[in-house]
């Protein structure tokens, strides 16, 4: 469980202005949850994420991971290994150039013995479907493959939560889809709690819970379906809904009985079909 209480965060920009990146954040994330965090550029999403595994420490307020305060030095390794993190730029998270050696990095730091280390590296690679690339050089991989290696490098710690800071924003649509289905699988089969920051509204549909941030505050904490129904709110946050949501809402306005909270394309087609058929009766 990650529990954030009254978190404030201020920082200084290069021209000496104080900016308040986070204002009075209160948030609890339970094990096994899949939470998306959205918000316009500069709304404080990344800063919030960095507090979740103690990369940033709160000056005001507290962050607890399974009851342990991130501020206390002796909790450091426990927190880092319970809450793994994957970042935006695939190139900037590797410490060596061979796949399996990079994945082992966290285990080396955690003083895992040799045999167990090799076993866990193998499992992590299989889990992300990249075992055949274990000897490959990281530079030779595509952006999407690099992100999978980065994910393997985090799950090798056997974390309870994984925080993803816009992991798909530098990828092409196909890799993006692959990463998304991987996240879903990690959540469903391994019961890892996922905290997923994204810019792509279609990807929000993966989550069961969405947190909307604006100007350093949490302005909404609901389910994706309900979120997209309120287009005016989204637009006031400088965000947009997926195309089909706009469509369903339009139909709703014109008196059709279509659930605008639908995010799955197949479900949407079924709903439309039902509306067309219902008409016939």
């Amino acid at each position: 469980m990650i529990k954030i209480e009254n978190l404030d965060c201020m920082y200084k920009t290069s021209n000496n202005q104080m900016v308040q990146a986070l204002k009075g954040i209160n948030l609890t994330i339970n094990p096994g949850e899949f939470v998306a965090i959205i918000g316009a550029n500069g709304s404080g999403k990344s800063t919030l994420a960095k507090h979740m595994n103690g990369i940033m420490l709160p000056k005001e307020g507290d962050v607890f991971v399974f009851g342990k305060n991130t501020k206390e030095e002796q909790n450091n390794l426990f927190i880092k290994k319970s809450v793994g993190m994957v970042f935006q730029n695939p190139d900037n998270q590797f410490v060596t150039s061979v796949v399996e050696e990079d994945i082992a990095f966290a285990l080396e730091n955690l003083e895992i013995p040799f045999d167990e280390m090799h076993e866990r590296v193998r499992m992590a690679l299989e889990c992300v479907g990249m075992y055949e690339y274990k000897d490959a050089s990281i530079e030779s991989l595509s952006g999407g493959q690099k992100q999978k290696i980065a994910i393997a490098g985090a799950i090798v710690m056997q974390p309870k939560f994984l925080v993803f800071d816009e992991p798909t924003s530098m990828l092409d649509p196909q890799s993006r889809e692959e990463i998304c289905s991987l996240l879903k699988r990690l959540n469903e089969t391994m019961n890892i709690g996922i905290i997923f920051i994204t810019q792509f509204m279609e990807e929000v549909a993966l989550a069961k819970r969405v947190i909307v941030m604006n100007d350093g505050k949490i302005v909404k904490d609901i389910s994706p379906g309900c979120l997209f129904e309120d287009i005016d709110f989204l637009e006031s946050m400088k965000l947009k809904a997926p195309q089909i949501t706009y469509f369903c809402l339009e139909l709703n306005k014109l008196g059709e009985n279509i659930n605008p909270g639908i995010l799955d394309l197949k479900e949407c087609a079924d709903e439309l079909a039902a509306a067309l058929k219902g008409n016939k009766l």
Binding site: G39, N41, M170, Q199, E235, K238, L239
Partner: peptide, 8 residues
């Protein structure tokens, strides 16, 4: 538009 929010 890579990396920009939908609005921008």
């Amino acid at each position: 538009t890579a990396g920009l929010d939908p609005y921008s």
